[in-house]
Write a protein that binds this DNA or RNA. Structure first.
Lengths: 221, 221
DNA sequence: ACCTGAACACCGTTCAAGT
DNA sequence: ACCTGAACACCGTTCAAGT
């Protein structure tokens, strides 16, 4: 029975257990599960502790803050992002696959988007590994070193913004009472094909971004 | 003395005031100021009420939730975004100016990024006006109606992701102890020019995105 | 209708006491 | 070292009571 067992019986003893009942990895695993099941607001230190069969204060023997938990969760999410195209496919196809996988991962965890944008990569091993595959792939494909990080950040910014956009309600652009003063919005809305509109906008932007990047690599300066 | 006066003397009377002391606009104005002065965590209903010289519960006669306050603040921020290029400049130059102004506005208010991505535009008049200028500008420039909203959303996703990126610490990509396993990241970091790196990545991405969009408009399908 | 003040059901976090 | 349970300083929000 791994630490991931749900709803373990609460400990009744008063003092230090003979063997530790918590580990950093176990906390992270349960935090990911909790985030997946109950969403952003469901991930509280109290709920996490209950899942682990422990008092909330016990968590603080293993993590300093809730932000620590979020950082660990985020590194775990990044572990699942597919970077396998680099070195196997042309750089632009690899970058496109990475961007799609990256967006899919954060579509499932939009609450982590602001965390990802701001958290240093050190002590986040899977995150470092992801960036290493992308950066070394771009370098090997002939991208000038001084542009590589900017390319990565530009694509990442688009991906994270697009991940937030997947949360938008379908009628976000419906001007309601203000329709009379917004004929252009109304026309554009009416002509927009139905279906997965967030994905359509993402694919359009990704395609445009890659076209521009190919041009930049071909004619630098 | 407008409602924006700071630290008014608290009312001491017990019942309904002879004239209302709060208005929706006054609440929004003070909320913007509070967000600007104290940042995301500083904008609490208690702090907002104190600034307005009122008990926290009084706010609930004018707004239903704190989310309401955030939505109003956000519409106010959108009022300041420059859309003046549309109809005056070529569509791509107008779109670039809009994107820069949009990013600048949310760089000052990164906490509003997740709100913006998700909030319906109805009952947000300045936001509708912004989208109207952009949409009608693209339509007038010859963009097919069925692509206009996707273009807007794609650029917006890039802008909002880039706004979050401005919050990142300068050493976010420093692999620390993991440097030995990340030679590509280390090389790219070392070669990246110093200065406003977030802006450099934004300008690179914006340029690439616009190049791709120009190509798409020229050769649709 | 629109305010006050008390109350409710939470938060994340700290800390003394236990083993 | 690593747990419990009580406590602290907050949150956003509700609601009866006042005018």
């Amino acid at each position: 029975m791994p630490t991931a067992a749900s709803s373990p019986a609460p400990r009744r003893g008063r003092g230090r257990p003979s063997r530790p009942v918590l580990t950093a990895d176990g906390i992270t695993t349960e935090a990911v599960a909790l985030l997946e099941e109950r969403g952003q607001d469901g991930l509280t230190m109290a709920a996490l502790a209950r899942r682990l069969g422990v008092a909330p204060s016990a968590l603080y023997n293993h993590v300093a803050t809730k932000q620590d938990v979020l950082r660990a969760v985020q590194d775990d999410v990044n572990r699942g992002i597919d970077c396998s195209g680099f070195g196997r496919l042309p750089w632009d196809a690899a970058l496109a696959d990475w961007a799609r996988s990256y967006r899919d991962a954060y579509e499932r965890h939009p609450a982590l988007v602001p965390v990802m944008a701001v958290t240093p990569v050190r002590s986040a091993p899977h995150t470092v590994e992801m960036y290493e595959r992308v950066s070394s792939g771009l370098l090997a494909a002939g991208w000038p070193a001084h542009l590589v990080t900017n390319v990565v950040v530009a694509v990442e910014s688009f991906v994270l913004g697009s991940a937030l956009d997947t949360e938008a309600p379908a009628d976000i652009f419906d001007p309601g009472d203000l329709a009379a003063s917004a004929p252009g919005v109304t026309t554009a809305n009416a002509a927009r094909p139905e279906g997965d509109t967030a994905r359509a906008a993402f694919e359009l932007g990704l395609s445009a971004l890659l076209t521009g990047l190919r041009g930049l690599l071909a004619a630098p300066g």
